[in-house]
Design a protein around this nucleic acid. Sequence first.
DNA 1: GGGCTTAAGCTCTGCGTAAGGTTCCACGTC
DNA 2: GACGTGGAACCTTACGCAGAGCTTAAGCCC
Lengths: 223, 223
Amino acid sequence: MHRLLLVEDDEKLGRQVVEQLEGLGFEVDWLRDGSEALRVDPELYALLLLDQMLPGAHGLDVLKRVRESSDVPVMMLTAVSDTSSTVRALELGADDYVTKPFWPEELAARVQARLRRPVAEREGRIEVGGLTVDLEGRSVAVDGSALELTRLEFDLLALLVRRRGSALQRAWIADHVLDAERENSDRTLDVHVSRLRKKLGSYGACVQTVWGVGYRFNEELKP
Amino acid sequence: MHRLLLVEDDEKLGRQVVEQLEGLGFEVDWLRDGSEALRVDPELYALLLLDQMLPGAHGLDVLKRVRESSDVPVMMLTAVSDTSSTVRALELGADDYVTKPFWPEELAARVQARLRRPVAEREGRIEVGGLTVDLEGRSVAVDGSALELTRLEFDLLALLVRRRGSALQRAWIADHVLDAERENSDRTLDVHVSRLRKKLGSYGACVQTVWGVGYRFNEELKP
DNA sequence: GGGCTTAAGCTCTGCGTAAGGTTCCACGTC
DNA sequence: GACGTGGAACCTTACGCAGAGCTTAAGCCC
């Protein structure tokens, strides 16, 4: 089964999280100190859970170090107020974040969702419930019937679905989807998201807006 | 059940692939060396899986040799970076390719999908509803009556039909179909597509334009 | 002369933006 | 803590325009 690393200095919260995750069959290593976390080999783990405020080293430092050598998924545990750190974490390549206080069950569910799937980028086709995205054929179907998406809409959906579960930054999405040549209005991306949601019908709800950050495809919300 | 040949020198990857395929009920012969592969009779197998970089002989050499005597489906295992070899492989008649690194599960799924297709196609003939494309005889028939296609029109149709379901890029199609020597106008391809559609009659609708990308043969749209 | 390419006019798609409405968060007040 | 309020972030609709793609007709070259 998957092995996870949790870095969290709060004893009580840490114990709850470990219990939840082990209850789901994960093996969990738990470190209380940031400086210890700087020394571990991230490749040993299927996923990392990093608190932001840590003794020894800040969670962002750990994240930065990890990203120098590995693509392992990283989920940040952040305080509600600390939005600037959250944005910074996403810039550094965090895959998702959970704001404190949270229910350990919620965190466990997010972890499970992330690890359940094969590495999507390498598949030619991704299926989420009744939604099928054919990356090679550039076609999309909902419950069997084909959808007419524009080039940009398809790219947008593909991006979100391939990294489903992760909150993607507006600017990052824009960089990857919009025409890089021109200075785009801030509202351009909204419009395309809006149009995509509409065309996706009942699956439109899976395209979540993450306030102040960007968007996330949430497969838990499928109809 | 089907018998497959895998030619792969990486021990670990090879073992994984063999396990997966045997798990699906295939019989698998596994060679580690390209020069051995040059000596086998491809007709013994339902499908060949060829790595590109091999000791003894390059995967492309094996492919070339195989194609001299057989139409057995060949799937290439290619490194991400090696796009020029991939193009060359398709020119030589490879049916599909999977880029490394891949999940053995993914490869197994592709193999299964490929072998589910009707027998005619493996013998150089593809049938989509009432449309028959004879790759060897370079002839096309709609509902039994032959069609007069030019060389280029046939190549274009063959390309689209062989990779039906995939959205092919304009530039890629042009590279494979038009005269590579000259700088072609952007509109040249349009004209041939247009003429092809006209000649295909009711099947013309299967040739879909994928806006901003290229074209796709969509067998779902057959009349 | 048959087949490939180009030219040119045309259609129409899809992208971006503006503008007005809506939702959400932060902060202050009670 | 409940409530209210201002402002920022976001949603949605409508519209114009650049340019992708279609088609016909005419040229070019083997």
